[in-house]
Amino acid sequence: MTHSIAPSFMFFLHALALVNVMNLADCSLGAFAILNTARLLGYIPQIMRVHRDKAGARAVSISTWLLFTAANIATVSYSITVTHDLLAVAIFSANTVGCVAILVLTAWKRSRDQSRHTQNQNEPRNRAGDRTSGAHTYSKEI
């Protein structure tokens, strides 16, 4: 039993030594930098899914991404005017760009899908109700 406790105790001592070297502010800054950088990478799968979506990206919530964009802009403004934290300005500016990219791509996909849908609705139909290309002319039967 002493052998199973020893590695745990050694880990605890190592963690304690690390805490003595890094204070809470250092740990917080490290977590902030790592997590927000990872968040930047997190936009890529969302952008790819919107790009590949064939149905106008209907599953993407524009209001949610607008809220994320507004929150990032507010954080950039706060970082510039109050804390003068250039790291936060850079990270949240990049996050804003990611959110705006998703918004613009989603809006583009929806408008493209809507215009395609409208075009299909306006396409002429033949007597059987089938859509035609508009190139056919029909003669009256006598």
Results as ranks from 00 to 15, higher is better:
1 M>H: 07
2 T>H: 06
3 H>S: 10
3 H>G: 05
3 H>Y: 11
5 I>M: 14
5 I>P: 01
8 S>H: 06
10 M>E: 12
13 L>Q: 02
16 L>E: 10
16 L>Q: 05
16 L>W: 12
17 A>D: 14
17 A>N: 02
17 A>R: 04
19 V>G: 02
19 V>Q: 05
20 N>V: 11
20 N>W: 15
24 L>R: 08
24 L>Y: 08
25 A>E: 11
25 A>D: 11
30 G>Q: 01
30 G>W: 11
31 A>M: 04
36 N>G: 00
36 N>Q: 02
36 N>L: 02
36 N>K: 00
37 T>L: 05
38 A>K: 14
40 L>F: 02
42 G>A: 04
46 Q>E: 05
46 Q>H: 13
50 V>F: 00
51 H>K: 14
53 D>S: 12
54 K>V: 14
55 A>M: 03
56 G>R: 04
58 R>L: 07
60 V>T: 13
63 S>M: 07
64 T>S: 03
66 L>G: 04
67 L>I: 03
68 F>I: 12
69 T>V: 03
70 A>H: 01
73 I>E: 02
74 A>S: 13
74 A>I: 05
77 S>A: 15
77 S>I: 15
80 I>S: 06
83 T>S: 14
84 H>N: 03
84 H>T: 00
85 D>I: 05
88 A>T: 08
88 A>K: 06
90 A>H: 07
90 A>R: 14
90 A>N: 09
91 I>L: 15
93 S>H: 02
95 N>P: 05
97 V>M: 04
98 G>P: 04
98 G>N: 08
102 I>L: 11
104 V>R: 12
107 A>H: 04
109 K>Q: 13
109 K>T: 03
110 R>I: 11
111 S>P: 05
111 S>K: 11
111 S>M: 13
112 R>T: 15
112 R>E: 15
114 Q>L: 14
114 Q>K: 09
118 T>N: 15
118 T>R: 13
118 T>H: 14
120 N>V: 12
121 Q>Y: 11
121 Q>S: 11
125 R>Q: 15
125 R>S: 11
126 N>P: 01
127 R>C: 04
128 A>F: 09
129 G>H: 00
130 D>E: 15
130 D>H: 10
132 T>P: 00
132 T>W: 09
135 A>N: 14
136 H>M: 10
138 Y>T: 14
139 S>G: 06
